[in-house]
């Protein structure tokens, strides 16, 4: 089973996770820029964060044979802090980088006017840089958040086929299924979605444009739930080709629209001197 986790925050995970993910079949990940739990207070700290997403983290992933890409954006929560808003001016520099395959996570947290402005502005950046967009949907007031999200997407003029609307569930899936947007589902140990519930949604709505991610981060989450979902699909009678479509070909097709997805030589070592600095540097 080859797995592409289209949404995982590896910055918050350990090397043990990389080892377990690689052993489970995860060969590629996309790490969206997001909120780090502790609110940030200046633009410079975003610079260091974005730099790690296109520098250290891909190197770290490469030690374990995992290909790492990123999406870059000012996240919805911190778009509300005037101290962080100038991050928007930094983004064009990062959106030119090889490893950046989309603008994201953008979208809504509390649906404020500041979030409206940041969301619309960053969709425009995606269009200008010819990149897809990864759109987070809010935890609270989710259904109305998704409706408003789709309205903003329509207004922006971005091709719906280049938008991934994430963190959907049984209630919100229908709203997005009727558009040409891609649908993301985050499988969590307790909240968001579970593997059995995901299997039911795939039975109902099919595998087309459906993406499954672990969204693993600093909270209670599990980077192996992509694999668990694939196994639950097989047990429920889906074919291996169905699993491959959901866990590999769909994310490859979506992020491949950036023209920057690099999955060459994945079986081999990613770095010139693979397997050393982390394995030995910390001892």
């Amino acid at each position: 089973m080859r797995i592409f986790d289209p949404h995982i925050h590896m910055t918050s995970r350990t090397t043990d996770d990389y080892e377990r993910m690689a052993a489970a079949g995860v060969r590629a990940v996309v790490e969206p820029a997001f909120w780090l739990g502790q609110p940030r207070t200046s633009v410079d700290t975003f610079v260091d964060y974005f730099d790690s997403l296109i520098g250290w983290e891909p190197f770290r992933a490469g030690q374990f044979g995992v290909r790492h890409h990123a999406t870059v954006a000012l996240n919805p929560k911190e778009a509300n802090d005037p101290r962080c808003r100038p991050v928007l001016d930094l983004l064009p520099r990062y959106l030119d980088k090889d490893g950046v395959v989309a603008v994201g996570e953008i979208g809504y947290d509390s649906m404020t006017p500041a979030e409206d402005a940041a969301f619309a502005g960053q969709l425009a950046l995606a269009v200008a840089h010819d990149l897809p967009a990864l759109v987070h949907t809010p935890h609270r007031d989710k259904a109305r958040g998704v409706e408003r999200t789709l309205a903003v997407v329509a207004e922006s003029g971005i091709d719906h086929g280049r938008v991934l609307v994430d963190h959907l569930n049984e209630v919100t899936v229908k709203l997005v299924r009727d558009t040409r947007c891609w649908l993301g589902f985050s499988i969590y140990p307790e909240t968001k979605m579970s593997p059995p519930r995901m299997v039911e949604l795939l039975r109902t709505y099919g595998t087309e444009r459906m993406l499954v991610n672990s969204a693993a981060d600093w909270g209670r989450s599990d980077p192996l739930l992509t694999r668990a979902t694939g196994e639950a699909m097989l047990l429920a009678g889906f074919t291996e080709d169905d699993v491959d479509r959901v866990l590999w070909r769909n994310p490859v097709e979506f992020y491949g629209q950036s023209g920057r997805l690099d999955l060459t030589d994945l079986e081999g070592a990613a770095a010139t001197f693979a397997g050393n600095s982390i394995l030995r540097g910390g001892e």
Binding site: W56, F59, A271, T272, F273, N276, S277
Partner: peptide, 9 residues
């Protein structure tokens, strides 16, 4: 200073 062996090299 980095631990990225490609940069050190």
């Amino acid at each position: 200073r980095t631990n990225d062996t490609r940069l050190v090299a």
